[in-house]
Design a binder for these strands. Structure first.
Lengths: 209, 209, 209, 209
DNA sequence: GATGAATGAGCCTTCATTCAT
DNA sequence: CATGAATGAAGGCTCATTCAT
């Protein structure tokens, strides 16, 4: 049964997606992917150089896009920080973060799940800490500004911010892993941001007084 | 030269803990565990039937304990729910959750890390969703009570509660994976519960009106 | 766009020659040959039954030719030996060997390189020992004649002749593998024959006395 | 059937030796080696890290020894060259080369065969050209000295020396591949050196006049 | 005629597990 | 008790070859 190249390529990527989703990058088996895609393992290598390349094909485009977004938003944040960061700007802060994340989610489709939750052992495995770092840096700027002349953040504040950033990303990862419908995804992420936003405001107040 | 049986058993479990922590259940290597424990891989099998059994030995007791706690708290919650769930009781609600979780953390020691974060591929890999289910059930009760006569929760409310429960557990897992010091652990978990608590209050208000 | 059959055949053989030269028979890759010939690997099998057949096509004609030469020269040598083998004839002996070899080299072109140096794993891999046998037989006749009435060669003489024949072929093979320019090739082979001739003369003298 | 470690190690090396000898480094199959050694392929890896390591174990010691010899003899040659290189020293030259080679052969045993003739694809594959370079350098020194004030060698002389060095090594390789008895090996190598020595003398004379 | 997708056997290697010693 | 040699299945990957199109 001869099939067109693109169809087969898609079939492989589909089977690979499923396998990566179930087993993660390291435990995924090329043989199983092949079987699921209805072919011999050798044939996969006509379409993808190796396991990494196959993972890349699914997840790489999204990663690039993320990189563009991240850089852009960090620069914007930098600019705002330099100008001063008044109440008005601060209130618009979480909308920006929210837009970044929700935008990414909308643009991404199901591959975000692999990137965020199943990439251990691949070259993308640091994505979570990158994302965390990104969010952390935004939060730090916001906090520093809010704190005003009181000076730089103390150790405990930094740890808490780090935790908030990380758990926020964990939460997003969970949502991505459990809801694939684009609308629902957006709603839930917004909700999570709300929750964390609320917690943050409280923390800021506490530290300001 | 002969070592007592229990000492050897401990040595194996110690080495295994470290290996599981670093590599996770699936990627953990029996050979490396044996080497680290100062023996041959074959000897491990005199003390533990297989990899799973070894993981069990480390993580199983905590799992049982968790099960006891969970059941107990659920029953309590049930009782309260039946009696009615007034403001006062509601305000004490998060303290209970908090106590449950922090108590578990204190009672558990480092094996919680394995159970929550390194059990993929083992028979405990569903622990997170179990925990989530537990928290979800508590939240549902609380919400239902708060909503009062307006009747049962709608689909959307249930989904949001599910998400909040799950992401809360994810957050706790992250903390457990990143901070081992018992005090810091407590502080951070309390902080996370604060944040989620704040978000929850807002949500309740929103839905009450 | 359609190419004539013979052109394609040639293109394949050309690409195959290069691949066999670089990688040897066993390590040669049909895929690389196809790519270099500007076609798909499958198409090669319309022109050649398999890898061996392709190697055959390049190297077979030369092998046949060698066989003709060898038989012819052996018969001549036989005839001379029967007639008696005086000094004059003996002095012309190495010229004959030389002419045989250099003739083959000139008549052969680059495929001799494959036949002599890259045929391991193919059905031609015994060519070196065949050639050696041929030269050995010539040398044996010459020696026997030179030794005269002293009778047949002893074990040690036969071994040395065998070795000289073999290393002479090895030398020629090295030259063929390293110099492709026809003139240089001739010069160096003559030079090698000189060297071996010199050694042989000495050996003959030693054994005659 | 339990066997002592060293016995098994030897059995593997023996089987490996045979396999490498028959198929060369690249074509050798670990499975076949294992089968020949009476075990599963996996078990080999208890004794040798991988194919390369196994080849190393057989061939490495000899290679080290060769390196020591080569350096030593090159230094000696250098010293002689500086002092001047009269007839007497020159006549002793080939005795030195001969001693080097024959010494190596005696010290080496059958692994020399693998090193010289079956190492393609391994990290030792350049051994022939190294050896050739070594001999070539000795010959060049000798020639330059013999030529005296006439100055450096011309292109053609250099090519011929290169060829003589290379074909000499080829000859030695052939001998090693075909005779394993230590005495016979010595005799034949001496014989080959004689032959080449004779050819060299003639060449020197030709170029001196 | 030619394509190139597909196969299947083979490669080296790793690893949990078993068992003779 | 403990060893560590051995197994067997699986891993990712390559390649000559076949065959539907």
């Amino acid at each position: 049964m001869q099939v067109l190249k693109e169809e087969v390529r898609s079939a492989i990527m589909l089977a690979a997606y499923e396998e990566f989703r179930q087993s993660g990058y390291l435990e995924a088996s090329m043989r199983r992917i092949a079987t699921a895609a209805g072919m011999t393992s050798g044939n996969i290598y006509r379409y993808f150089r190796n396991k990494e390349d196959l993972f890349d094909a699914i997840v790489g485009p999204l990663y690039s896009e993320y990189n563009r977004y991240a850089q852009e938003y960090l620069q914007t944040a930098e600019a705002i920080a330099t100008d001063g960061w008044d109440v008005e700007k601060r209130t618009s802060f979480f909308e920006r973060v929210q837009n970044t994340l929700v935008g990414l989610l909308m643009a991404s489709g199901p591959s975000l799940l692999l990137l965020l939750c199943r990439s251990e052992g691949s070259k993308y495995e640091s994505i979570r800490s990158e994302l965390t770092g990104f969010v952390e840096s935004l939060l730090t700027k916001s906090f520093t500004a809010a704190k005003g002349p009181a000076g730089p953040l103390d150790e405990r504040e930094r740890i808490e911010i780090g935790m908030l950033a990380a758990t926020m990303i964990e939460s997003v990862a969970w949502i991505v892993a459990n809801y694939h419908d684009s609308d629902m995804l957006g709603t839930l992420v917004e909700r999570v941001i709300d929750v964390f936003g609320c917690g943050l405001e409280k923390q800021m107040e506490a530290h300001r007084s």
